[in-house]
Amino acid sequence: MSHSHNKNEILSHELPATPLDPKTQAERDAKIQVAMIGLCGCWGCTLSFLDMDERLLGLLDKVAITRSSFTDVKRIPHRCTIGFVEGGVANSENIETLEEFRENCDIMISVGACAVWGGTPAMRNVVPLEECLIEAYVDSPTAVEGAKKVIPFHEDLPIITTKVKPLHEVVKIDYFIPGCPPDGDAIIKVLDDFVNGRGFDLPSEMNRYD
């Protein structure tokens, strides 16, 4: 299911880049590597990641952020200690990205309702996939009149999964931060605990499902 490389296609992490000076690179490599990816979600949890605000600065002497909404790289350049994932699994590209990420993360954490149980995209799970596609593309009330009714299908498009799955039904997930989205407070609490060797502990007053 990997991206076909015999096509005229270059991913951003494959582009030539000027290497960092060796000292900066060595300092960065010595830090705890943290990454966050998004699958089938709304990127709201990533906004909560940004809501860590200036509190993140206090961690930056210990933490290097690789793939995330701050950096916009498509693959993590090397192994990560902590990987956050938002969004559920809804298509073949999600599965590929998630499996690749799992192979390269020591600790993996589901962030938000979509990652934890499917969330809003999983509302389609009570309807057969065929009916969903017909409603969206064939009998859509907003379809352009007279236009040819086509359900998109092309080798470049990821294949939709029959049901939206929570991440832990596809790969092993170590910890869960529920919420839609969880607060930046919850994410910084978890990150700070791991960075300082304390382990996962999300107290009930910080836990939320909405």
Binding site: V116, W117, V126, D210
Partner: peptide, 28 residues
């Protein structure tokens, strides 16, 4: 059931949700 807290009118007033927090449920 299908307990989609983000889309529920009862969220914040729901005893099941509040009990989930008390028993430290993160995921089923």
């Amino acid at each position: 059931g299908n307990h989609n807290c983000p889309s529920c009118e009862k969220s914040g007033r729901c005893e099941l949700q509040a009990t989930g927090y008390e028993v430290d449920m993160m995921v089923s």
